[in-house]
Each structure stands twice: as structure tokens, then as C-alpha cells.
Simulated scan of single mutants.
Amino acid sequence: MLNSPIDPRPPGRNADQMVMVLKKAATRQLILNGFSGLSIQRIVAEAGVSKGALFHHFPTKNHLIAAAFADLLVSFETELGGFGARLRQGEIGRTQFARHVVETFASDLFIGSMEIALAIRVEPELSELVADAVQTWRAGLNAFWIETFDLGLPPDEERVHWAMASNLLRGHAFTSTFGVEPGAREKFILGFEELMLSKAVVKNAAIQA
């Protein structure tokens, strides 16, 4: 009689919990060691599980990375949406809004997600696995700007303007990985506000509701 397969999941963790633990471990290792240093051994050590547990839930390392990446993008979209809602409701001002958005793009988590975004250019399998998440993120990011501000421009011109705003934020995030001089971030925040937000009218939350 054949022995029953060994369940690789540690006791006390259900499937959903195990998936979440693995995704969090992959994210943390991405931040600590970068994409090039994101090994399966480091991920399972961080998660406190076996390789068998990882492959029980994810066919390959790239499948795990893609799942973690999708979660990161959702969390960024949620966080940005919260700042937009607070601005529309008058809880924060335009400069404070700009500061929150800049700091979110310059966070360790976003920097880590950028490493994956760069990696998909040379990893065809990973590129295919994250394609839907990236498309959803781009649409969500555009919606975030459009729902928060009115430029009074044709839709195509508004999309170009907000794409430029997002690119500026990503560029600042990338250069921040090399360190920034004291006061440089504050100057960028004020410059970003003046260049991208000064002519935009904040939409009224009550009218949208």
C-alpha cells in the first residue's frame, strides 16, 4: 500500500494563511535583497516553511512573485485612493496631499515593486504572469487622478497630463534609491505641486457622492 502524500503545510495554517505568509515573505525579501537576490531559499526561510509548502501553492517562484506584485499594486491603489478622498473631503490640503503621494511612491514597497517592473522586461514568463495586474494598476492610477482633479481639458489631454505626473513620481522614486540631499524631497514636493497640481481643481466629494 502506498503511503499518503505528506501535507507540506505546517499545522495551524490554512491555505489562505499560507499563501499570505509566502507573499509577505517574498515582498520582504524583495525589499531587503532586490529582485536579483530573491531566491526561493531566502523566501522560505523568511516564511518559516519548506520548499514543498511553497510549491504546493505556487508552481514556480515567478508565480509567487507575480502574486505578491499584484497585492502590492492593489495596496498602493488603495492608499492613493485614500489620500484623494481626504483631499476631496477637505481633510488635507493640496501640499499635504502631494507630500503623501510622493512619499508613497518613494516608499520601500514601491521601490521593490519597481524592481519587478524592470525585471519583467527580461523575464517573459513573469511579464505574462503580471500583465493583468499591471493593466489594472495603470487603469486604477489614471482613475485616481481623474476622480480627484478636474483640469478642464479634453479627456486625452488629461490622461497625458496625469501620465506625466505619474512618471515624475516614479522617476523621483528611482533616484531616491541613490539617496537624496537634505531638503531635496521637500523641494520636489513643492515643485510637483506647482507643475502638476496648481491648475487642477479638486473635485467635490459631496457632488461625486
Score class of each variant (00 low, 15 high):
Ala143Tyr: 10
Asp108Gly: 06
Ala205Met: 12
His57Phe: 15
Ala25Tyr: 13
Gly52Val: 14
Thr175Phe: 04
Ile111Cys: 07
Val101Phe: 00
Arg28Pro: 06
Val201Met: 07
Thr60Gly: 09
Met196Val: 01
Val101Glu: 00
Ile189Met: 08
Ile189Leu: 11
Arg28Trp: 06
Asn3Lys: 08
Val180Gly: 01
Thr177Ile: 00
Asp16Lys: 09
Ile146Thr: 04
Val160Glu: 15
Ser198Trp: 01
Asn142Glu: 11
Gly171Met: 03
Ile207Met: 11
Asn62Gly: 12
Arg170Ser: 10
His100Ala: 03
Met164Cys: 08
Ala205Leu: 08
Glu186Phe: 06
Ala45Ile: 04
Gly48Trp: 03
Met114Gln: 15
Val74Trp: 11
Lys24Ala: 11
Asp156Val: 12
Leu168Val: 12
Leu87Trp: 00
Val201Glu: 14
Glu77Phe: 01
Arg9Pro: 06
Ile43Trp: 03
Phe58Lys: 06
Pro155Gly: 07
Asp7Gly: 08
Arg185Met: 04
Thr95Cys: 10
Lys199Val: 02
Gln208Trp: 11
Ala70Gly: 05
Ser36His: 02
Leu153Glu: 11
Glu194Cys: 05
Gly183Lys: 08
Lys61Tyr: 08
Pro5Asn: 06
Gly37Met: 02
Ile65Pro: 01
Ser107His: 00
Glu115Ala: 14
Phe188Thr: 02
Ala25His: 14
Arg42Val: 01
Ala53Arg: 01
